[in-house]
Simulated assay, not measured.
Amino acid sequence: MANTSYWNRNFILILIGNALLFMVYNMQVPVLPLYGKKLGLTPSQIGIFVGAIMFAALVTRLFVPWFSGKFSKKVLLVVGILLYLVASIGYPLLGSFGLLVLLRLFNGLGHGITTTYFATSAADELPHQKIGEGMGYFGIGTMVTASLAPLLALAVVHQYGFTAFFMTCIGVLAASMVTILGTTPHRHETVKTATKAPVFDLKFLPQCSLVFILGVLMSGVMTFTPIYAQVRHLSAISGFFFVAAIAGVVIRPIVGHTFDRRGPRLILLLSTVLLTLGMLLIAWVNHNWLLLLAGVFYGVADGAIYPTLQAWIFKVTTIENRDTATGMFLNSYDLGMGLGAVVLGSVVELVSYQGMFLVLAVVSLLYIGLAMVMSRAKA
């Protein structure tokens, strides 16, 4: 099969639709903590508000086997994007903590559905021997829009306010919907009446454990770096997310080819070391250029670890069980993101923002050893 055979209309539309959805997600990452702060929420409340999306996504993915047996991926993606739209419409209209958390839960339902079925729809278009390469390119779409998202989001908020920001999110989500409506069901997708794999399978423990801890680490960076930059009187927070996304875009094709040839071990070693360095830089940052350098390290690590673990889990499962395996993988990541946002919000109140990032640096250091133990067996 030719190397570019998976570049068909379906794969391109799925890539674009996923990229646009994640653009909204990454637009909200730096803005929602600021929005919560403007409304008078405490750091713990901000952590709960931001992290609620992950808990809702986790619960939603427990029903992936049932969803897959009843509905096509296209229908499920449309429903997921609609739930994202409901939340984005409601955020500027409802200002109380309880109602905001409720909207975030609706957002999480959509997030759980879309992240599962965008990934598996893309994997359906890929030959098995090109899983690493194809998912690497699939992730580039996410990283490209992620590089633009913080710049666009913060610029809109500063110039026009939060209401205009949420209207922008609605427009981007509508564009994502259009791309999905243009796709056709893949030949692998049939009505499934056979028993699906269990919701949790120990075969996927290495990938799920590693991506869970990655989620905890990422939640600390994405939720609290914008506020920490304000505390440190730094103005380069948009640049931080921009260079991180660019670094992720650059590294992903290299990571994909390396994974297909050598498996996950070397990639995980180098990227976890960079992740630790990035956390240390954020903890001690006192100049904008150090914040940007931390963004590069963080971006390379995130752009290498996540797609490597995702490609690895696709390598060890079957086509029939991809939906379930993907649900487990994403649930592990989102559980880490959700718990991380809540727990780390409390850590901030105990030891300050800098202390919280030093804790993350220690966790990252331990993560290096765990990654080496878990990746002993080749994919």
Rank of each mutant, 00 (worst) to 15 (best):
G141E: 06
L205W: 12
A155L: 05
S176Q: 03
V172N: 11
T163Y: 14
A244I: 14
T183Y: 04
T195P: 09
V144N: 08
I140H: 01
F212I: 04
A119T: 15
Y228H: 04
T168V: 15
Q230G: 14
A244E: 00
H233T: 11
S209P: 08
V216H: 01
H188W: 05
S147I: 12
M135T: 13
A175F: 15
Y117F: 14
E125D: 01
H188G: 07
S176Y: 03
I180T: 12
H111W: 10
T145Y: 13
H188F: 05
Q207G: 11
A122I: 08
A229Y: 01
L205R: 15
I227A: 11
T195W: 08
P127M: 09
L217D: 01
A123R: 15
A175I: 14
G161K: 03
K196H: 15
S147N: 05
V216N: 01
L217I: 10
A236F: 13
V156R: 00
G136A: 11
S147M: 13
H186T: 13
G132V: 06
G139W: 02
F200Q: 04
A244K: 11
E125F: 07
T193F: 00
G134M: 11
M222I: 09
L205M: 13
I131G: 04
A123F: 00
T115Q: 04
